[in-house]
Design a binder for these strands. Sequence first.
RNA 1: UGACCUGUGGUGUAAUUGGCAACACGUCUGACUCUGGAUCAGAAGAGUCCAAGUUCGAGCCUUGGCAGGUCAACCA
Length: 567
Amino acid sequence: MTENSNGGNSESGKKLNFIHVQIEEDLKSGKNNGRVHTRFPPEPNGYLHIGHAKSICLNFGIAEKFGGKCNLRFDDTNPSKEETEYVESIMEDVRWLGFDWEDRLYYASDYFGKLHDFAIQLIKKDLAYVDDQNAETISSQKGTPTRPGIESPHRNRSIEENLELFQRMTEGEFDEGDKVLRAKIDMASPNMHMRDPIIYRIIKAHHHRTGDKWCVYPMYDFAHGQSDFWEGITHSICTLEFEVHRPLYNWFVDHLQETDYRPRQIEFARLNLTYTVMSKRKLLELVKDNHVNGWDDPRMPTISGLRRRGYTPESIRNFSDRIGVTKVDGVIDVSLLEYSVREHLNKTAQRVMGVLNPLKVVITNYPENQSEELDAINNPEDESMGVRKVPFSRELYIERDDFMENPPRKFFRLSPGTEVRLRYAYFVTCNEVVKDENGEVVELHCTYDPASKGGNSPDGRKVKSTLHWVSAPHAIKSEVRLYDRLFNDESPDGHKDVDFKEFMNPDSLKVLTECYVEPFVKDSRPLDHFQFERLGYFNLDFDSTSEKPVFNRTVPLRDSWAKEMNK
RNA sequence: UGACCUGUGGUGUAAUUGGCAACACGUCUGACUCUGGAUCAGAAGAGUCCAAGUUCGAGCCUUGGCAGGUCAACCA
């Protein structure tokens, strides 16, 4: 009823964040001739994670909202960390999330030539110099945030000498670390980034695109603003830690570009999630040290991991909208992410009956070698998804937890002498419990009431509970992987620098091999999301090499239901 | 003891030109039995970091504090 309770009043009806407000102001004041152009600029040094999804949704979302454009740009200025595999996975993930950069795919490496020319311009303006000192020395001369730095002895080299040295750097005459090009700004600036920052360094590594053409590479601060400028970016959105870089970003653009147009850097808070490690460095470590089975392991917070876990693009985009955009560095509870999947999957997922921990049930008054097909609803929230046939026969499997020989007071499911409903099928009553020599229950003998076909008895009698089940001879045996959070409840949030591996949850992956699902599943390969009724949300994992279906459970169990049963 | 940024229920986000702080998640309670971890109904929970000031009236304005974050990579 009150659908516009968000206070926003944009055309799309979605919530306005502070960046939207800023853009509206820019638009009103006639900046950039009414253009809005953003970019998503990942470094291809790892797979994208849920934090990047926030940035993707923000940047592409702004373009959509204001009728502008959003570029995809790979910020590949450091060849020692970057790989083509990452480029490809990033493109796949952005597309999967539902965004399109059309023909606007760029690489910072496309600008290496222009950037190099700009470096020379800077030297010619006496705003850059070659420093021969090593990293340590340069670092020690930087001073501290509270104490000014001191100038390099090479700071006042002649323009000619700088030009020559930079040329020789470019030609590969020096080794890595021997020389760098620095901007000549202010060694006493209160902003550390303005104390003669390095703009070019020697790296003798193979670049994933330019190969061995270059051995000097521009630094982020030097390259980023210029790239934005050349692409006509109006709003360059980045995370909070770049706030102190902004003066430098502006300094480079101001000293190198001549028109009035200026891209504008705006910072927002990166996403932190509880129980979730999101630093690329740490995720890389998990992959490299085989703590997980690759970047797309369903326990990973990567977009590819979430995809295999069964998350939908819609659910991630909804999550993104829900968390908003601010400059407050906070921590979001993962339950909000999980809520977002459940919300979407509940509307769209195919319902299927399945048994994870089987207990055999024999319907003693049902004829042998007979079977029949019963109608089951595919999605109670969406009639258009129709119905399917579920085979029923004399031998069934039910969930082991659905039977108790000596039930406590509030246990209404199957126990000796009680009658329950098998969903979509019949009322059954348990008459006999078969045990093995260890006293373990191995089989139940039940009788069914043929008059209760479909799930209701003509005499109007009620049963207290409904079970789901599969027909033993028809069921497909499958493997089910139950994924839980990779990190346990004590794990620190966000990017805090601690030994995060101490907090890994040893039970984060359980593989169950004796599971049975309706045969329906076999014929519905294209439908990869299922809700196993009562058991949670699953998806078929196509990654499996085996012939049998393998399911990943998407949303971890919460214990409220179990708690209820233990009362 | 520098510069920049940020402070609204447990969490996240709102609050038109200053007008009794709203929404979502989470939590708790109840209902519903063709299974819910679903759905529905309800409840608790902040007086907006603090202090002064301006004002009939301040989360929004002013001043001063306090707290937290970021910055000293030849990473991005």
